[in-house]
Design a binder for these strands. Structure first.
Length: 260
DNA sequence: ATGACCTGTTTAACAGGA
């Protein structure tokens, strides 16, 4: 089973690229972030025609997440628990049944957090604490479970072209790293590093300053697996070539194959 | 991580992104 995550940076601007990539990559499940659309504005029928079931958690103009699944969706959770006042659409989860096991998949768009001297940074850290509490509960089920998405966290120096230039950034600050380590310490496995820990495996290149031609990238899109999912991990890859397409997203897809 | 950007909203700049 192939499961992917991709921050598409706007469904209206990216629908053609997304269709092309789905046809090429043939994921069974795709977690999408930054759809930048209300739920009713998401072109679900386009993907239903391609054989996907579609769940959307949209918002006007900003954020927004969706999951496309070729397997029937048995349960869904819209939004991250823990703060009823949070109106930002950043989390969606589905439960599907594979031939061998139930499988729970959370798709997330973790807050950026910049600038760090504004309320945006404490919001990011509080959101990460909520994600920690949620993941803790899911891991207690001892089932295959994964959290896939745009974490807006650069895990280590090996994941950024010029680490020293990023030290004070919300994606790379010690407090951000501490919150990310706390999440991992629950027993989650970074799928990419489990199969290949080479440096410089980027998933995002800024539109500005020639970042793509100069390969000034960062790795911020991750799939974190429960022990039961990690046991079934076959491979993890980054579809870097989509960054070179016409009208690209600034992120590229990351996907795993699970033996389920 | 500094070149010279992109998207949505709305239809001229602005907010937000990373």
């Amino acid at each position: 089973m192939k499961i992917a995550t991709w921050n598409i940076n706007g469904i209206k601007a990216r629908i053609q690229n997304l269709k092309s990539w789905l046809e090429e990559a043939q994921p069974d499940i795709a977690c999408l972030q930054e759809i930048k659309s209300v739920s009713e504005g998401f072109p679900s029928s386009t993907f239903e025609d391609m054989g996907y079931n579609v769940v959307v958690h949209g918002q006007k103009s900003f954020n927004g997440v969706a999951i496309l699944s070729k397997l029937p969706i048995e349960e869904q959770q819209i939004g991250l628990p823990g703060d009823p006042s949070d109106e930002q659409a950043r989390f969606i989860e589905v439960l599907v049944s594979t031939p061998s096991t139930p499988l729970r998949i959370g798709g997330l768009y973790l807050p950026n957090g910049n600038p760090v001297d504004t309320e945006k940074y404490p919001y990011k850290l509080a959101w990460m604490e909520r994600l920690y509490q949620f993941a803790k509960g899911r891991l207690e089920l001892e089932e295959p479970f994964l959290l896939a998405g745009d974490y807006n966290i650069i895990p280590a120096d090996a994941d950024v072209h010029a680490p020293d230039a990023w030290r004070g950034d919300a994606l790379f600050r010690p407090e951000s790293h501490a919150a990310y380590r706390k999440l991992l310490s629950l027993g989650l496995t970074d799928a990419l590093y489990a199969v290949n820990d080479k440096p410089g495996q980027y998933t995002f290149w800024d539109y500005q300053a020639g970042a793509w031609p100069k390969n000034n990238g960062i790795r911020i899109d991750h799939l974190l697996l429960s022990p039961e999912a990690a046991d079934r991990l076959q491979t993890c890859q980054i579809d870097k070539h989509t960054r070179g397409w016409e009208k690209p997203s600034d992120h590229v897809p990351v996907w795993i194959k699970l033996d389920v």
